[in-house]
Design a protein around this nucleic acid. Sequence first.
DNA 1: GCAGGTTTTTACGCTTACGTAAAATATTTT
DNA 2: AAAATATTTTACGTAAGCGTAAAAACCTGC
Lengths: 133, 133
Amino acid sequence: MKSPEQKQFYSITELTREFEISTRTIRFYEDEGLIQPIRRGRTRLFKPSDRRLLMLILRGKRLGFTIAEIREIISIYKEPPGEGGQLKLLIKRVQEKRDQLLQKRKDIDETITELDQVEEQSLTRMAELGVGT
Amino acid sequence: MKSPEQKQFYSITELTREFEISTRTIRFYEDEGLIQPIRRGRTRLFKPSDRRLLMLILRGKRLGFTIAEIREIISIYKEPPGEGGQLKLLIKRVQEKRDQLLQKRKDIDETITELDQVEEQSLTRMAELGVGT
DNA sequence: GCAGGTTTTTACGCTTACGTAAAATATTTT
DNA sequence: AAAATATTTTACGTAAGCGTAAAAACCTGC
């Protein structure tokens, strides 16, 4: 039971259009080993899993993670079940990443709070001036 | 009524130690116009307000904002009350920044959820193996 | 008043994350 | 099959964000 609208392959330009990035960027991520599209002759063919990886990469970028850090995150997802020691290590890495993310969220919440204050003061000031919104 | 432990001035090394950054970094931010310490002779003296600005800059960095974006955020805070048109513009800028931050928070929450799943699976697997935490 | 740490300016260097151009090859459209 | 469009490799270029080194000036404690 394949889901109906699941494409087999995406071309590089399809992906550049969907995510508004350049071909250079996609090839850069390939050079960095983050994605490994298969080839038909010389042409790259991207599977849905490559597309999902790309989404993951771009999300990481939005969060200000470096390529190295994104590589770490990806490797966490890819890690096979493994045995005891490996699993403990994996869990430690997960916790470290989560701590980073929680710090970022704290930073975000603080900033939003401050921006809200600026907005409120502005609105008050506008009301004083009798200016309409 | 001054708060008791409020220092008048900080030296550059005090700040590098407190925030674990280099003098070069601080001077770079000065070159970029983000902070303007006063001078006693040639030596820079940083006021508490400079220190707060520095904290703001570093927080922005943690969130993956570029120097240019951090400059924008700072300018939002610095904006004087102003008149009608300016205020409307300011509010628009606040809203744009907030939208960016909300997007980032969404990205963070998604990533955390995924990491939680990896952790849970790992813990389950460890239990299966009879490995202690 | 001088040794030792701090701070300054100046300036070249380096990494990351792509941009951009060129020239060949491949694919798709008409 | 010709024309237009897409994709490839190769390779040099660049902006951001500092690192690092050098040499002078400054301050600080003893």
